[in-house]
Design a protein around this nucleic acid. Structure first.
Length: 576
RNA sequence: GCCCCAGUAGCUCAGCGGAUAGAGCACCGGCCUCCGGAGCCGGUUGCGCAGGUUCGAGUCCUGCCUGGGGCGCCA
């Protein structure tokens, strides 16, 4: 069954079509009614009639009485629609019995690659990895829920010249020692020591350079050592992902090295297609429309003058592989905004090569930086740079303090043995929500106090709204009623009904631009609307019919919040 | 120098070419014998600047200003 907005839009489209073939109803939310159709206004010029007159013609053609109680044309030509309360109630009844809460699985599932997180082997994960990991995971969850065949791909940095020095450092440390250092998370120490040796010790530097050659030529022993490095780092990444609560696993790791065997083929194919130009000894493709600082055409270098391959060739190989071998219809690259031009060039070249088409699209889901309250980098409580793990631990600590503080001030609090779990959900949820709730294109300000506030558009507020609803059932000692259509008598009930029915619409809008903040805004709206309802409509009343009806609204509110947050990768506690 | 992104209330942010630009925080004023006051109701303050397109521009186009980022063998 189509969502409410689509149902209305279909009827409107038919009526507009009768007045002017193919006319768009331009359906929008309204502050004058529930919805408004603005489509008559742009038709005025085309048809040479006044907008209001056209709107009246549309309304005459409109068959919508079962969905709307009121349809009104304003003097300006807006068509204001008031949804039928009976219709809303019936739809809510359907929702009550639907575990998917009105979100239908897509008719034609697509294979969609979501490329996100991408930390580097033997390098610490830092705040810079937060957004790609959190946003990518949220998008992957939403697309999966819609029924798509989602391939999470963690394009880790597991190849390149630094591995010569890293392997030699591993040799010097001893494999066991080195591996445990890596998996325990002392990646910064490992990397910096390797770097220090490389810079201060000529012998070490020579060995490192030879080791790079050995690695690239496929030397067995070198390869084995390389795998030790990678495996140790991956174990560490897993602990971070587990802490963050993202769904990436070892199976999702498809590092740069995975594409090594395909690079020569990519270059050959580009050459065969006549796209290659040798420039200063490097094999290049010049996609049109890109210029350097002198105004000369800017190349994408697919093979360096020394014969080596850079990241452009790896990215091209990944596109080709994902399209031709995996059958990907969409590829989402959840990577920061600074790489916009790189991806534009890669996508342009991939299109020239025929890998990217209308049937197989690559999308750069870019995002801005994370800034501290001072507009600069994020610093820890003690000051100084902060690792991702440190940040997450601090979030949980702060959440624990915040919850304890609230508890001691609230005589009605419910304590329990799972306070650590709650602090984890709230702390991690706060970090993720603050990231997801800002338009990904913008830089956003990382502010502990704001993200952990229990008021406003925050994770804790939404979790609290959920926990509070659950407590109604606990304290009232009532169970969730059997699915049925509620009675919507109070305006607050009606407003809540509309909000609850809007979940599929919010998800559609969110995925249309891969913007999780839209889902966040929606959930905040649901929570606010619920609170207003709860303030104005007593739930645990004696009248059984009314109590049941309102309990259904409560339960649906909790479920919408829970499902919505789970699609963002945020857990909800039963109590706080 | 060229390219990309951003500039909306004191602060943090929404805003799909449509009517009077919205939230939260902060501030001010109300509401408690109330199922969790972590609340509810109301009030104050704004689209960087200048042109243009349009019946209609925060939204699209051009120029400028400010901030951030990028610009050939790193990823």
């Amino acid at each position: 069954m189509p969502d409410v907005r689509s149902a209305i839009e279909q009827r409107l489209a038919a009526a507009f079509d009768a007045v002017h073939a193919g006319a768009n109803p331009v359906l929008r939310p309204s502050d004058r009614a529930d919805l408004q159709a603005n489509g008559a206004l742009p038709l005025a010029k085309v048809l040479g009639r006044s907008p209001a007159e056209i709107a009246r013609s549309v309304v005459e053609e409109l068959d919508i009485a079962d969905l709307c109680d009121e349809v009104e044309v304003s003097g300006n030509g807006f068509i204001n629609l008031t949804l039928s309360t009976g219709y809303l109630a019936v739809r809510l009844g359907d929702l009550a019995g639907d575990p998917r809460l009105g979100i239908e699985a897509v008719a034609t599932p697509e294979t969609i690659v979501v490329d996100y997180s991408a930390p580097n082997v033997a390098k610490e994960m830092h705040v810079g990895h937060l957004r790609t990991t959190v946003i990518g995971d949220a998008l992957a969850r939403m697309l999966t829920f819609l029924g798509h065949d989602v391939r999470r791909e963690n394009h880790i940095g597991d190849w390149g010249t630094p591995f010569g020095m890293l392997i030699e450092h591993l040799v010097d440390l001893g494999e066991e020692e080195g591996a445990s250092e890596l998996s325990a998370g002392d990646l910064t120490g490992f990397y910096q020591q390797a770097r220090a040796s490389f810079e201060s010790d000529d012998g070490f530097a020579d060995r490192s350079r030879r080791r790079v050659v050995l690695l690239q030529s496929g030397d067995d022993e070198t390869f084995r050592l390389w795998r030790v490095l990678v495996a140790g780092s991956v174990r560490y990444f897993d602990t971070v992902y587990s802490k963050l609560g993202v769904q990436l696993t070892d199976d999702d790791i498809v590092g740069e090295s995975y594409y090594n065997d395909m690079l020569a083929g990519v270059v050959e194919e580009l050459e065969a297609k006549g796209l290659l130009v040798v420039h200063d000894g490097a094999k290049c493709v010049f996609p049109p429309g890109f210029a350097n600082r002198n105004g000369d055409p800017l190349p994408l270098i697919v093979q360096k003058s020394d014969g080596g391959y850079g990241y452009a060739s790896t990215d091209l190989a990944a596109i080709r592989h994902r399209v031709l071998d995996l059958g990907a219809k969409r590829m989402l690259y959840v990577v920061g905004a600074p790489q916009t031009q790189h991806f534009q060039m890669c996508f342009a070249v991939a299109a020239m090569a025929g890998w990217l088409t209308d049937e197989a699209q690559a999308i750069h889901v870019s995002f801005g930086n994370v800034l501290g309250a001072d507009g600069r980098m994020v610093a820890s409580r003690a000051g100084g740079t902060i690792t991702l793990v440190g940040l997450l631990d601090e979030a949980v600590d702060r959440a624990r303090e915040a919850i304890a503080g609230r508890r001691s001030a609230d005589p009605n609090n419910e304590t329990g043995s799972d306070d650590d779990q709650i602090a984890t959900m709230v702390g991690i949820g706060a970090v993720k929500y603050s990231d997801l709730s800002t338009d990904r294109g913008r830089d956003y300000v990382f502010d502990w106090d704001r993200m952990l506030a229990f008021e406003g558009n925050t994770g804790p507020y939404l979790q609290y709204a959920y926990a509070r609803i659950r407590s109604i059932f606990r304290r009232g000692e009532v169970s969730v009623p059997a699915p049925a259509a509620p009675v919507l008598r109070d305006p607050h009930e009606r407003a809540l009904a509309i909000a609850l029915l809007w979940l599929p619409v919010a998800l559609d809008d969110t995925l249309a631009t891969y913007s999780p903040h839209k889902l966040c805004s929606y959930l905040f709206e649901v929570a606010s609307t619920f609170t207003s309802f709860y303030e104005n409509c007593r739930v645990l009343v004696d009248d059984e019919a009314q109590r049941t009806s309102r309990l259904i609204l409560c339960d649906l509110s909790a479920r919408v919040l829970s499902l919505g947050l789970s699609l963002l990768g945020i857990e909800v506690p039963e109590r706080m």
